[in-house]
Nucleic acid binder design. Structure first.
Lengths: 115, 115
DNA sequence: CAAATATTTTAGTTATAACTAAACTATATT
DNA sequence: AATATAGTTTAGTTATAACTAAAATATTTG
């Protein structure tokens, strides 16, 4: 594995892009629409970085350019990323659970003051 | 796996440190001596980053502080790194081989001038 | 206790990465 | 041909990471 791969997946922005194309190719525009906090240009540059690291490949159809992930370039790291994303979901769910708990907490069990 | 882990292994300097402690703990000083192109302070800061990412742990003995890798924090990435280092060695060997070839190439076998 | 050793921390600098705005290329539509 | 759409590239700015020099801490040794 090339060092460039490790560098590429270190950036949250680039991981966001990888995640977006993880299950199927997306056009550059669609990717940008999913991250409206940055300009199209910024997205395009990150796409280039990912391309050059070999983590993405692209094809042009009409006016659009579609990007897809090259999982083989990631090797075992693919599963690491998937697990990270799953964990993040899990934590969100957990947070939601805690919210509920805060609204109606179970009283602490165990030995209380025996008066 | 925490994003901090991916960030930590993205830096060549930090990978250099990981490699140095890979097969056994090393003192901060020993690590610094192995990378004389940076100051002790710089090494110490990278050690802190690696500690905070959970990739290293440390113990103090006398005046020294020994750092060792926490492979369990790396999961499948441990093997990725090992393979990267092996590949780098392999490439070095290959380059050395080419050097030898340049210095004293084996004469091509086959029918030579029979004098 | 003073001096030496091993390491960390701080404050400021420099290098690198990420970003923006605008210009540019290419393809399609009218 | 003009206009619109989709994307890239460039030049300059801003944010972040890595580094240095020096001060600070902690532990041993004389």
């Amino acid at each position: 594995m090339e060092p460039a791969v490790l560098e590429a997946i270190a950036s949250p922005r680039r991981r966001e892009i990888l995640r977006l194309v993880w299950t199927g190719e997306q056009s550059a525009g669609a990717i940008h629409r999913a991250m409206p906090d940055v300009t199209f240009g910024a997205v395009s540059l990150q796409l280039r970085t990912l391309l050059e690291a070999g983590l993405l490949e692209a094809r042009t159809e009409q006016r659009n350019r579609y990007y897809r992930v090259r999982r083989e370039a990631l090797g075992p790291v693919a599963e690491v990323l998937e697990r990270m994303w799953d964990d993040a979901l899990w934590k969100l769910k957990l947070a939601a659970g805690l919210e509920e708990t805060r609204r109606g907490p179970k009283p602490r069990r165990g030995r209380g003051k025996r008066t």
